Amino acid sequence: MHKLVIKNGLLYTSVILKHEGKSVIVNDVIIDTGAFHTIIAADYLESMDVGFSDEDELVKASGYGGTVCYSVRKKIDSIECGNIVVNNIKLDFGEIDPNERVNGLIGLDYLRSAGVILDLVDLIMYIKK
């Protein structure tokens, strides 16, 4: 079970990214059921000192209102939201919020892979048993 917080009318949480023996905590991440892919600000790859590989791909994404941005889709070892862990997942890394108030969006790829249930009454998420 993992606690969520509502700020500015949105669901927020924190995640831990792990890759090649390194990890980083990413705060101010929005749970976004309207996002197909999870995206994290590219600065967090840099803070883990993780480079790019031939397996990484450049992807084009369309956001709300038709804005278009590009990001790098990279397979990482794991993403953790409390005790909810998804291993070997491809995440997008790029710009989410030019004002730097949002560090990432947790999308359906993570939520469905983990089997997450969102309890909006108690503001928790947990894995379906």
Results as ranks from 00 to 15, higher is better:
Met1Cys: 06
Ile6Pro: 07
Ile6Arg: 15
Ile6Cys: 08
Lys7Thr: 04
Lys7Arg: 14
Gly9Ser: 14
Gly9Cys: 13
Gly9Arg: 13
Leu10Ala: 11
Thr13Trp: 03
Ser14His: 06
Val15Ile: 15
Ile16Ala: 05
Ile16Thr: 14
Ile16Gln: 12
Leu17Gln: 02
Leu17Ile: 12
Lys18Thr: 15
Glu20Val: 02
Gly21Pro: 07
Gly21Ile: 07
Lys22Gly: 04
Ser23Cys: 06
Val29Glu: 06
Ile30His: 05
Thr33Asn: 09
Gly34Ile: 05
Phe36Tyr: 14
His37Cys: 12
Ile40His: 07
Ile40Met: 11
Ala41Ile: 03
Ala42Thr: 11
Asp43Asn: 13
Ser47Asn: 08
Met48Gly: 03
Met48His: 04
Met48Cys: 04
Met48Glu: 07
Val50Phe: 09
Ser53Trp: 01
Ser53Glu: 09
Asp54Arg: 11
Leu58Arg: 09
Leu58Cys: 09
Val59Gln: 09
Ala61Asp: 10
Ala61Glu: 12
Ala61His: 02
Gly63Cys: 11
Thr67Cys: 03
Tyr70Cys: 05
Lys75Thr: 14
Asp77Asn: 13
Ser78Gly: 09
Ser78Ile: 08
Ile79Ala: 07
Gly82Leu: 06
Gly82Pro: 12
Asn83His: 02
Asn88Ser: 14
Leu91Met: 06
Leu91His: 10
Asp92Tyr: 05
Phe93Gly: 13
Glu95Val: 15
Glu100Tyr: 05
Val102Gln: 07
Val102Asn: 08
Val102Phe: 04
Gly104Ala: 12
Leu105Trp: 00
Leu105Glu: 03
Ile106Cys: 10
Ile106Arg: 08
Leu108Ala: 14
Tyr110Ala: 02
Ser113Asp: 11
Ser113Glu: 13
Ala114Asp: 11
Gly115Tyr: 01
Gly115Arg: 00
Gly115Trp: 01
Val116Tyr: 01
Val116Thr: 10
Val116Glu: 00
Ile117Cys: 04
Leu118Cys: 01
Leu120Trp: 00
Asp122Ile: 00
Leu123Asp: 04
Ile124Asn: 10
Met125Trp: 02
Lys128Asp: 14
Lys129Trp: 10
